[in-house]
Design a protein around this nucleic acid. Sequence first.
DNA 1: CAGTGGTCTAGACCACTCT
DNA 2: GAGTGGTCTAGACCACTGA
Lengths: 233, 233
Amino acid sequence: MNKYQIIHDELLKEINDGKYPNNAMLPSDFALMNRYHVARETSRKAVAMLVDEGYVMRIKGRGTFVINQNRYSFPISHVESYRELAARLKLDERTQLLSITDSEVPSVFEYGDDTAVPATAVVRIRYLDNEPVIIDHDYVLKDVVPEIKKLSQSVSLFELFEQQLGLVISYAKKTITVEPANATDRQLMGLAESIPIVVIRSETFLNDGRIISFTESRHRADRFKSVEFSRRH
Amino acid sequence: MNKYQIIHDELLKEINDGKYPNNAMLPSDFALMNRYHVARETSRKAVAMLVDEGYVMRIKGRGTFVINQNRYSFPISHVESYRELAARLKLDERTQLLSITDSEVPSVFEYGDDTAVPATAVVRIRYLDNEPVIIDHDYVLKDVVPEIKKLSQSVSLFELFEQQLGLVISYAKKTITVEPANATDRQLMGLAESIPIVVIRSETFLNDGRIISFTESRHRADRFKSVEFSRRH
DNA sequence: CAGTGGTCTAGACCACTCT
DNA sequence: GAGTGGTCTAGACCACTGA
Protein backbone atom coordinates (compact mmCIF):
# COMPACT_ATOMS: atom_id res chain seq x y z
CA MET A 1 0.00 0.00 0.00
CA ASN A 2 1.30 3.45 -0.90
CA LYS A 3 1.95 6.02 1.77
CA TYR A 4 -0.44 8.56 0.30
CA GLN A 5 -3.12 5.89 0.03
CA ILE A 6 -2.72 5.02 3.70
CA ILE A 7 -2.94 8.67 4.72
CA HIS A 8 -5.95 9.16 2.47
CA ASP A 9 -7.77 6.15 3.89
CA GLU A 10 -7.05 7.16 7.46
CA LEU A 11 -8.24 10.72 6.93
CA LEU A 12 -11.38 9.50 5.17
CA LYS A 13 -12.13 7.15 8.02
CA GLU A 14 -11.75 10.01 10.48
CA ILE A 15 -14.11 12.13 8.40
CA ASN A 16 -16.70 9.37 8.29
CA ASP A 17 -16.24 8.71 12.00
CA GLY A 18 -17.04 12.33 12.73
CA LYS A 19 -13.62 13.24 14.05
CA TYR A 20 -13.64 15.96 11.41
CA PRO A 21 -17.28 17.06 11.18
CA ASN A 22 -18.75 19.30 8.56
CA ASN A 23 -16.73 22.49 8.02
CA ALA A 24 -13.98 21.25 10.34
CA MET A 25 -10.41 21.93 9.35
CA LEU A 26 -8.19 19.02 8.43
CA PRO A 27 -4.54 18.96 9.56
CA SER A 28 -2.35 21.20 7.44
CA ASP A 29 0.24 19.85 5.03
CA PHE A 30 2.95 20.38 7.59
CA ALA A 31 0.97 18.73 10.37
CA LEU A 32 0.51 15.67 8.16
CA MET A 33 4.23 15.65 7.33
CA ASN A 34 5.01 15.41 11.03
CA ARG A 35 2.30 12.92 11.86
CA TYR A 36 3.22 10.47 9.11
CA HIS A 37 6.90 11.36 8.63
CA VAL A 38 6.52 11.92 4.91
CA ALA A 39 7.50 14.60 2.44
CA ARG A 40 5.05 17.38 1.82
CA GLU A 41 4.17 16.28 -1.72
CA THR A 42 3.17 12.89 -0.35
CA SER A 43 0.78 14.35 2.22
CA ARG A 44 -0.56 16.71 -0.44
CA LYS A 45 -1.30 13.78 -2.73
CA ALA A 46 -3.45 12.16 -0.06
CA VAL A 47 -5.44 15.34 0.45
CA ALA A 48 -5.68 15.89 -3.31
CA MET A 49 -7.50 12.56 -3.55
CA LEU A 50 -10.02 13.67 -0.93
CA VAL A 51 -10.56 16.87 -2.90
CA ASP A 52 -11.08 14.83 -6.06
CA GLU A 53 -13.67 12.73 -4.33
CA GLY A 54 -15.51 15.75 -3.02
CA TYR A 55 -14.94 15.15 0.68
CA VAL A 56 -12.91 18.27 1.41
CA MET A 57 -12.15 21.65 -0.06
CA ARG A 58 -8.81 23.45 0.09
CA ILE A 59 -8.76 27.23 0.49
CA LYS A 60 -5.48 29.02 0.01
CA GLY A 61 -4.27 30.76 3.12
CA ARG A 62 -7.01 29.23 5.28
CA GLY A 63 -6.82 25.46 5.28
CA THR A 64 -8.57 22.27 4.23
CA PHE A 65 -12.21 21.90 5.22
CA VAL A 66 -14.73 19.08 5.28
CA ILE A 67 -17.70 19.50 2.97
CA ASN A 68 -21.19 18.49 3.95
CA GLN A 69 -21.99 15.22 2.23
CA ASN A 70 -25.42 14.26 1.06
CA ARG A 71 -25.73 10.53 0.96
CA TYR A 72 -28.27 8.02 -0.29
CA SER A 73 -27.40 8.52 -3.91
CA PHE A 74 -26.09 6.68 -6.89
CA PRO A 75 -22.62 7.66 -7.91
CA ILE A 76 -21.74 8.17 -11.50
CA SER A 77 -18.51 10.01 -11.11
CA HIS A 78 -16.33 7.01 -10.51
CA VAL A 79 -16.17 3.37 -11.37
CA GLU A 80 -17.97 1.48 -8.66
CA SER A 81 -19.69 -1.83 -8.70
CA TYR A 82 -23.24 -2.32 -7.53
CA ARG A 83 -22.05 -4.30 -4.56
CA GLU A 84 -19.64 -1.61 -3.44
CA LEU A 85 -22.42 0.93 -3.79
CA ALA A 86 -24.92 -1.03 -1.75
CA ALA A 87 -22.37 -1.63 0.96
CA ARG A 88 -21.49 2.03 1.09
CA LEU A 89 -25.10 3.09 1.41
CA LYS A 90 -25.95 0.27 3.81
CA LEU A 91 -29.00 -0.64 1.76
CA ASP A 92 -30.74 -3.96 1.82
CA GLU A 93 -29.75 -5.26 -1.58
CA ARG A 94 -30.19 -8.44 -3.50
CA THR A 95 -29.15 -9.54 -6.97
CA GLN A 96 -30.82 -12.16 -9.08
CA LEU A 97 -28.97 -13.76 -11.98
CA LEU A 98 -31.31 -14.18 -14.91
CA SER A 99 -29.15 -15.65 -17.64
CA ILE A 100 -25.66 -16.25 -19.02
CA THR A 101 -25.69 -16.69 -22.79
CA ASP A 102 -23.45 -16.46 -25.82
CA SER A 103 -24.03 -13.22 -27.62
CA GLU A 104 -22.46 -10.30 -29.43
CA VAL A 105 -21.79 -6.73 -28.40
CA PRO A 106 -24.95 -4.80 -29.37
CA SER A 107 -24.48 -2.19 -32.05
CA VAL A 108 -25.62 0.59 -29.73
CA PHE A 109 -22.11 0.54 -28.24
CA GLU A 110 -20.57 1.31 -31.60
CA TYR A 111 -17.63 -1.00 -31.18
CA GLY A 112 -15.79 -3.03 -33.75
CA ASP A 113 -16.41 -1.72 -37.27
CA ASP A 114 -19.80 -3.37 -37.82
CA THR A 115 -18.30 -6.82 -37.45
CA ALA A 116 -19.84 -8.95 -34.75
CA VAL A 117 -17.80 -9.07 -31.55
CA PRO A 118 -18.35 -12.28 -29.61
CA ALA A 119 -19.25 -11.82 -25.98
CA THR A 120 -20.91 -13.51 -23.05
CA ALA A 121 -24.15 -11.78 -22.08
CA VAL A 122 -25.00 -11.69 -18.39
CA VAL A 123 -28.40 -10.38 -17.35
CA ARG A 124 -29.12 -9.58 -13.75
CA ILE A 125 -31.82 -7.81 -11.83
CA ARG A 126 -31.05 -5.71 -8.78
CA TYR A 127 -33.34 -5.27 -5.82
CA LEU A 128 -33.08 -2.49 -3.28
CA ASP A 129 -35.30 -2.98 -0.26
CA ASN A 130 -36.98 -5.88 -2.08
CA GLU A 131 -38.01 -3.73 -5.01
CA PRO A 132 -36.60 -4.44 -8.49
CA VAL A 133 -35.01 -1.18 -9.56
CA ILE A 134 -32.10 -1.96 -11.88
CA ILE A 135 -31.59 -4.37 -14.76
CA ASP A 136 -28.00 -4.93 -15.81
CA HIS A 137 -26.99 -6.33 -19.17
CA ASP A 138 -23.27 -7.09 -19.27
CA TYR A 139 -21.42 -8.10 -22.41
CA VAL A 140 -18.03 -9.57 -21.52
CA LEU A 141 -15.67 -9.85 -24.48
CA LYS A 142 -14.62 -13.40 -25.24
CA ASP A 143 -11.28 -12.10 -26.43
CA VAL A 144 -10.47 -11.21 -22.84
CA VAL A 145 -12.57 -13.66 -20.84
CA PRO A 146 -13.22 -16.70 -23.05
CA GLU A 147 -15.86 -18.25 -20.85
CA ILE A 148 -18.05 -17.47 -17.88
CA LYS A 149 -19.34 -20.76 -16.59
CA LYS A 150 -21.23 -19.64 -13.57
CA LEU A 151 -21.54 -16.64 -11.38
CA SER A 152 -22.18 -17.10 -7.72
CA GLN A 153 -24.91 -14.94 -6.20
CA SER A 154 -22.34 -13.52 -3.87
CA VAL A 155 -19.77 -12.59 -6.48
CA SER A 156 -19.90 -9.55 -8.71
CA LEU A 157 -18.42 -9.38 -12.19
CA PHE A 158 -15.80 -6.94 -10.92
CA GLU A 159 -14.77 -9.37 -8.22
CA LEU A 160 -14.61 -12.15 -10.78
CA PHE A 161 -12.40 -10.09 -13.06
CA GLU A 162 -10.11 -8.72 -10.40
CA GLN A 163 -9.79 -11.38 -7.76
CA GLN A 164 -10.26 -14.59 -9.68
CA LEU A 165 -8.82 -13.66 -13.07
CA GLY A 166 -6.18 -11.19 -11.89
CA LEU A 167 -7.28 -8.43 -14.23
CA VAL A 168 -7.08 -4.81 -13.17
CA ILE A 169 -9.85 -2.38 -14.10
CA SER A 170 -8.74 1.18 -14.38
CA TYR A 171 -11.10 3.27 -16.46
CA ALA A 172 -14.70 3.46 -17.56
CA LYS A 173 -16.54 5.65 -19.98
CA LYS A 174 -20.23 6.16 -19.34
CA THR A 175 -23.09 7.72 -21.19
CA ILE A 176 -26.36 8.56 -19.52
CA THR A 177 -29.63 8.90 -21.36
CA VAL A 178 -33.31 8.61 -20.52
CA GLU A 179 -35.37 6.23 -22.60
CA PRO A 180 -38.87 4.73 -22.44
CA ALA A 181 -39.19 1.40 -20.70
CA ASN A 182 -39.16 -1.50 -23.11
CA ALA A 183 -41.16 -4.71 -22.77
CA THR A 184 -38.36 -6.45 -20.87
CA ASP A 185 -38.06 -3.59 -18.41
CA ARG A 186 -41.78 -3.56 -17.74
CA GLN A 187 -41.96 -7.28 -17.28
CA LEU A 188 -38.90 -7.66 -15.05
CA MET A 189 -39.59 -4.63 -12.91
CA GLY A 190 -43.34 -5.21 -12.82
CA LEU A 191 -44.19 -1.81 -14.25
CA ALA A 192 -47.75 -1.19 -15.34
CA GLU A 193 -47.39 1.99 -17.32
CA SER A 194 -44.33 3.13 -19.17
CA ILE A 195 -42.08 4.69 -16.58
CA PRO A 196 -38.97 6.32 -18.05
CA ILE A 197 -35.71 4.44 -17.63
CA VAL A 198 -32.32 5.97 -16.94
CA VAL A 199 -29.90 4.06 -19.13
CA ILE A 200 -26.22 4.11 -18.20
CA ARG A 201 -24.06 2.50 -20.86
CA SER A 202 -20.43 2.00 -19.99
CA GLU A 203 -17.34 0.50 -21.47
CA THR A 204 -14.77 -0.75 -19.02
CA PHE A 205 -11.03 -0.65 -19.69
CA LEU A 206 -8.29 -2.73 -18.17
CA ASN A 207 -5.03 -1.17 -17.10
CA ASP A 208 -3.41 -2.50 -20.27
CA GLY A 209 -5.84 -0.51 -22.40
CA ARG A 210 -8.04 -3.39 -23.53
CA ILE A 211 -11.80 -3.15 -23.24
CA ILE A 212 -13.14 -5.99 -21.16
CA SER A 213 -16.88 -5.37 -21.14
CA PHE A 214 -19.83 -3.26 -22.14
CA THR A 215 -22.63 -2.76 -19.68
CA GLU A 216 -26.14 -1.41 -20.02
CA SER A 217 -27.59 -0.57 -16.64
CA ARG A 218 -31.26 0.30 -16.73
CA HIS A 219 -32.64 2.15 -13.70
CA ARG A 220 -36.24 2.98 -12.85
CA ALA A 221 -36.11 6.75 -13.31
CA ASP A 222 -38.25 7.43 -10.27
CA ARG A 223 -35.75 5.59 -8.07
CA PHE A 224 -32.65 7.09 -9.62
CA LYS A 225 -30.51 9.78 -8.08
CA SER A 226 -26.95 10.74 -8.71
CA VAL A 227 -24.73 13.08 -6.75
CA GLU A 228 -21.58 14.51 -8.18
CA PHE A 229 -18.88 16.79 -7.00
CA SER A 230 -16.74 18.67 -9.41
CA ARG A 231 -14.00 21.23 -9.47
CA ARG A 232 -13.84 24.02 -11.94
CA HIS A 233 -10.95 23.82 -14.34
CA MET B 1 -0.07 30.90 -16.05
CA ASN B 2 1.49 27.85 -14.39
CA LYS B 3 4.01 25.75 -16.21
CA TYR B 4 1.96 22.58 -15.92
CA GLN B 5 -1.10 24.43 -17.20
CA ILE B 6 0.81 25.63 -20.24
CA ILE B 7 2.08 22.13 -20.98
CA HIS B 8 -1.42 20.71 -20.48
CA ASP B 9 -3.00 23.25 -22.81
CA GLU B 10 -0.39 22.71 -25.49
CA LEU B 11 -0.72 18.92 -25.37
CA LEU B 12 -4.51 19.16 -25.44
CA LYS B 13 -4.35 21.43 -28.46
CA GLU B 14 -2.08 18.95 -30.20
CA ILE B 15 -4.52 16.16 -29.42
CA ASN B 16 -7.45 18.13 -30.79
CA ASP B 17 -5.42 19.13 -33.84
CA GLY B 18 -4.80 15.51 -34.61
CA LYS B 19 -1.06 15.57 -34.01
CA TYR B 20 -1.69 12.78 -31.54
CA PRO B 21 -4.56 10.78 -33.03
CA ASN B 22 -6.49 8.04 -31.32
CA ASN B 23 -4.24 5.46 -29.63
CA ALA B 24 -1.13 7.53 -30.39
CA MET B 25 1.53 7.74 -27.74
CA LEU B 26 2.17 11.07 -26.06
CA PRO B 27 5.75 12.14 -25.24
CA SER B 28 7.13 10.40 -22.18
CA ASP B 29 7.75 12.22 -18.90
CA PHE B 30 11.41 12.59 -19.77
CA ALA B 31 10.70 13.86 -23.26
CA LEU B 32 8.43 16.52 -21.78
CA MET B 33 11.11 17.45 -19.25
CA ASN B 34 13.52 18.14 -22.08
CA ARG B 35 11.04 19.88 -24.31
CA TYR B 36 9.82 22.30 -21.65
CA HIS B 37 12.86 22.37 -19.35
CA VAL B 38 10.86 21.48 -16.26
CA ALA B 39 11.16 18.96 -13.46
CA ARG B 40 9.54 15.62 -13.94
CA GLU B 41 6.78 16.19 -11.38
CA THR B 42 5.76 19.29 -13.30
CA SER B 43 5.41 17.46 -16.59
CA ARG B 44 3.60 14.67 -14.78
CA LYS B 45 1.09 17.14 -13.36
CA ALA B 46 0.23 18.33 -16.86
CA VAL B 47 -0.38 14.77 -18.05
CA ALA B 48 -2.29 13.92 -14.87
CA MET B 49 -4.79 16.65 -15.79
CA LEU B 50 -5.29 15.10 -19.21
CA VAL B 51 -5.90 11.75 -17.53
CA ASP B 52 -8.41 13.36 -15.18
CA GLU B 53 -10.26 14.84 -18.11
CA GLY B 54 -10.36 11.54 -19.92
CA TYR B 55 -8.23 12.51 -22.90
CA VAL B 56 -5.39 10.08 -22.32
CA MET B 57 -4.61 6.90 -20.44
CA ARG B 58 -1.29 6.05 -18.81
CA ILE B 59 -0.08 2.46 -18.86
CA LYS B 60 2.90 1.55 -16.71
CA GLY B 61 5.88 0.39 -18.70
CA ARG B 62 4.25 1.30 -22.01
CA GLY B 63 3.43 4.98 -22.17
CA THR B 64 0.64 7.54 -22.37
CA PHE B 65 -2.01 7.02 -25.04
CA VAL B 66 -4.80 9.09 -26.52
CA ILE B 67 -8.30 7.77 -25.93
CA ASN B 68 -11.00 7.92 -28.54
CA GLN B 69 -13.36 10.72 -27.65
CA ASN B 70 -17.06 10.68 -28.29
CA ARG B 71 -18.39 14.18 -28.44
CA TYR B 72 -21.80 15.76 -28.91
CA SER B 73 -22.80 15.30 -25.32
CA PHE B 74 -23.65 17.22 -22.21
CA PRO B 75 -20.95 17.12 -19.61
CA ILE B 76 -21.76 16.62 -16.00
CA SER B 77 -18.36 15.79 -14.68
CA HIS B 78 -17.05 19.29 -14.40
CA VAL B 79 -18.29 22.76 -13.76
CA GLU B 80 -19.06 24.30 -17.09
CA SER B 81 -21.44 27.01 -18.07
CA TYR B 82 -24.01 26.59 -20.80
CA ARG B 83 -22.15 29.04 -22.99
CA GLU B 84 -18.87 27.19 -22.65
CA LEU B 85 -20.67 23.97 -23.47
CA ALA B 86 -22.36 25.32 -26.59
CA ALA B 87 -19.10 26.80 -27.82
CA ARG B 88 -17.29 23.53 -27.28
CA LEU B 89 -19.88 21.53 -29.16
CA LYS B 90 -20.24 24.19 -31.87
CA LEU B 91 -24.01 24.06 -31.58
CA ASP B 92 -26.36 26.77 -32.69
CA GLU B 93 -27.49 28.05 -29.32
CA ARG B 94 -29.63 30.88 -28.06
CA THR B 95 -30.69 31.95 -24.59
CA GLN B 96 -33.79 33.88 -23.68
CA LEU B 97 -34.03 35.72 -20.35
CA LEU B 98 -37.51 35.27 -18.91
CA SER B 99 -37.37 37.06 -15.58
CA ILE B 100 -35.24 38.46 -12.75
CA THR B 101 -37.18 38.61 -9.49
CA ASP B 102 -36.65 38.74 -5.74
CA SER B 103 -37.10 35.32 -4.24
CA GLU B 104 -35.84 32.82 -1.72
CA VAL B 105 -33.81 29.64 -2.09
CA PRO B 106 -36.39 26.87 -2.61
CA SER B 107 -36.56 24.29 0.15
CA VAL B 108 -35.64 21.51 -2.26
CA PHE B 109 -32.01 22.62 -1.94
CA GLU B 110 -32.11 22.02 1.82
CA TYR B 111 -30.06 25.06 2.68
CA GLY B 112 -30.26 27.31 5.68
CA ASP B 113 -32.10 25.59 8.55
CA ASP B 114 -35.66 26.22 7.34
CA THR B 115 -35.15 29.97 7.50
CA ALA B 116 -35.78 31.82 4.28
CA VAL B 117 -32.59 32.71 2.42
CA PRO B 118 -33.03 35.81 0.26
CA ALA B 119 -31.95 35.41 -3.34
CA THR B 120 -32.41 36.80 -6.80
CA ALA B 121 -34.18 34.35 -9.07
CA VAL B 122 -33.15 34.32 -12.72
CA VAL B 123 -35.16 32.21 -15.14
CA ARG B 124 -33.85 31.52 -18.61
CA ILE B 125 -34.75 29.23 -21.44
CA ARG B 126 -32.10 27.63 -23.65
CA TYR B 127 -32.53 26.82 -27.30
CA LEU B 128 -30.37 24.38 -29.21
CA ASP B 129 -30.94 24.48 -32.96
CA ASN B 130 -34.00 26.69 -32.33
CA GLU B 131 -35.68 24.14 -30.10
CA PRO B 132 -36.29 24.95 -26.41
CA VAL B 133 -34.58 22.15 -24.51
CA ILE B 134 -33.42 23.54 -21.15
CA ILE B 135 -35.01 25.79 -18.54
CA ASP B 136 -32.62 27.20 -15.97
CA HIS B 137 -33.72 28.57 -12.62
CA ASP B 138 -30.86 30.30 -10.84
CA TYR B 139 -31.06 31.53 -7.26
CA VAL B 140 -28.21 33.92 -6.54
CA LEU B 141 -27.69 34.58 -2.83
CA LYS B 142 -28.14 38.23 -1.89
CA ASP B 143 -25.54 37.79 0.84
CA VAL B 144 -22.93 37.41 -1.88
CA VAL B 145 -24.40 39.36 -4.79
CA PRO B 146 -26.85 41.93 -3.34
CA GLU B 147 -28.42 42.89 -6.62
CA ILE B 148 -28.64 41.77 -10.22
CA LYS B 149 -29.99 44.68 -12.18
CA LYS B 150 -29.86 43.32 -15.64
CA LEU B 151 -28.29 40.52 -17.56
CA SER B 152 -27.24 41.06 -21.12
CA GLN B 153 -28.22 38.38 -23.60
CA SER B 154 -24.59 37.87 -24.35
CA VAL B 155 -23.39 37.48 -20.76
CA SER B 156 -23.73 34.36 -18.66
CA LEU B 157 -24.07 34.32 -14.89
CA PHE B 158 -20.61 32.80 -14.61
CA GLU B 159 -19.15 35.62 -16.66
CA LEU B 160 -20.99 38.14 -14.51
CA PHE B 161 -19.63 36.58 -11.33
CA GLU B 162 -16.09 36.08 -12.49
CA GLN B 163 -15.28 38.91 -14.83
CA GLN B 164 -17.48 41.73 -13.57
CA LEU B 165 -17.62 40.98 -9.87
CA GLY B 166 -14.17 39.43 -9.48
CA LEU B 167 -15.45 36.29 -7.77
CA VAL B 168 -13.78 32.94 -8.37
CA ILE B 169 -15.90 29.80 -8.73
CA SER B 170 -14.11 26.66 -7.74
CA TYR B 171 -16.51 23.84 -6.90
CA ALA B 172 -19.99 22.63 -7.62
CA LYS B 173 -22.10 19.84 -6.25
CA LYS B 174 -24.74 18.41 -8.55
CA THR B 175 -27.60 16.01 -8.15
CA ILE B 176 -29.32 14.44 -11.09
CA THR B 177 -32.85 13.11 -10.97
CA VAL B 178 -35.63 12.45 -13.44
CA GLU B 179 -38.99 14.05 -12.71
CA PRO B 180 -42.26 14.55 -14.59
CA ALA B 181 -42.62 17.79 -16.49
CA ASN B 182 -44.51 20.42 -14.55
CA ALA B 183 -46.89 22.98 -16.01
CA THR B 184 -44.11 25.53 -16.48
CA ASP B 185 -41.95 23.04 -18.32
CA ARG B 186 -44.76 22.07 -20.65
CA GLN B 187 -45.69 25.64 -21.38
CA LEU B 188 -42.17 26.96 -21.94
CA MET B 189 -40.93 24.00 -23.95
CA GLY B 190 -44.20 23.58 -25.82
CA LEU B 191 -44.70 19.98 -24.73
CA ALA B 192 -48.04 18.38 -25.38
CA GLU B 193 -47.79 15.26 -23.26
CA SER B 194 -45.77 14.86 -20.11
CA ILE B 195 -42.25 14.14 -21.27
CA PRO B 196 -39.88 13.31 -18.40
CA ILE B 197 -37.44 16.02 -17.38
CA VAL B 198 -33.85 15.50 -16.30
CA VAL B 199 -33.34 17.85 -13.37
CA ILE B 200 -29.81 18.86 -12.47
CA ARG B 201 -29.66 20.79 -9.23
CA SER B 202 -26.35 22.30 -8.31
CA GLU B 203 -24.86 24.45 -5.64
CA THR B 204 -21.89 26.54 -6.64
CA PHE B 205 -19.05 27.38 -4.27
CA LEU B 206 -16.59 30.25 -4.42
CA ASN B 207 -12.93 29.69 -3.71
CA ASP B 208 -13.43 31.15 -0.24
CA GLY B 209 -15.93 28.43 0.60
CA ARG B 210 -19.10 30.52 0.37
CA ILE B 211 -22.05 29.29 -1.67
CA ILE B 212 -22.95 31.83 -4.31
CA SER B 213 -25.91 30.24 -6.05
CA PHE B 214 -28.27 27.35 -6.46
CA THR B 215 -29.34 26.28 -9.91
CA GLU B 216 -32.07 24.03 -11.17
CA SER B 217 -31.47 23.09 -14.77
CA ARG B 218 -34.39 21.25 -16.35
CA HIS B 219 -33.64 19.31 -19.57
CA ARG B 220 -36.04 17.61 -21.93
CA ALA B 221 -35.15 13.99 -21.21
CA ASP B 222 -35.35 12.97 -24.85
CA ARG B 223 -32.71 15.56 -25.75
CA PHE B 224 -30.42 14.84 -22.84
CA LYS B 225 -27.18 12.94 -23.03
CA SER B 226 -24.20 12.93 -20.76
CA VAL B 227 -20.80 11.41 -21.28
CA GLU B 228 -18.44 10.81 -18.45
CA PHE B 229 -15.00 9.42 -18.02
CA SER B 230 -13.86 8.03 -14.73
CA ARG B 231 -10.94 6.31 -13.18
CA ARG B 232 -11.26 3.49 -10.73
CA HIS B 233 -10.04 4.35 -7.27
C1' DC C 1 18.42 -4.28 -21.55
C1' DA C 2 16.58 0.56 -22.12
C1' DG C 3 12.43 2.97 -21.67
C1' DT C 4 8.25 3.83 -19.40
C1' DG C 5 5.23 5.31 -15.61
C1' DG C 6 4.59 5.31 -10.05
C1' DT C 7 6.23 6.82 -5.77
C1' DC C 8 8.86 9.59 -2.66
C1' DT C 9 12.19 12.91 -0.76
C1' DA C 10 13.96 17.48 1.16
C1' DG C 11 14.21 21.29 0.10
C1' DA C 12 12.66 26.22 -2.12
C1' DC C 13 9.83 30.42 -3.23
C1' DC C 14 5.38 32.33 -3.77
C1' DA C 15 0.42 34.17 -2.77
C1' DC C 16 -2.92 34.37 0.33
C1' DT C 17 -5.41 34.86 5.08
C1' DC C 18 -5.80 36.05 9.67
C1' DT C 19 -4.44 38.36 13.83
C1' DG D 1 4.40 37.78 11.17
C1' DA D 2 2.92 33.13 11.40
C1' DG D 3 0.36 29.81 9.09
C1' DT D 4 -1.79 28.06 5.15
C1' DG D 5 -2.05 26.05 0.42
C1' DG D 6 0.19 26.33 -4.71
C1' DT D 7 4.04 25.59 -7.52
C1' DC D 8 8.50 23.82 -8.72
C1' DT D 9 13.06 21.59 -8.50
C1' DA D 10 16.64 17.84 -8.96
C1' DG D 11 17.33 14.13 -7.65
C1' DA D 12 16.19 8.82 -6.13
C1' DC D 13 14.38 3.97 -6.25
C1' DC D 14 10.88 0.91 -7.86
C1' DA D 15 7.76 -2.10 -11.06
C1' DC D 16 6.50 -3.01 -15.38
C1' DT D 17 6.96 -3.50 -20.56
C1' DG D 18 8.97 -4.82 -24.80
C1' DA D 19 12.72 -5.92 -27.77
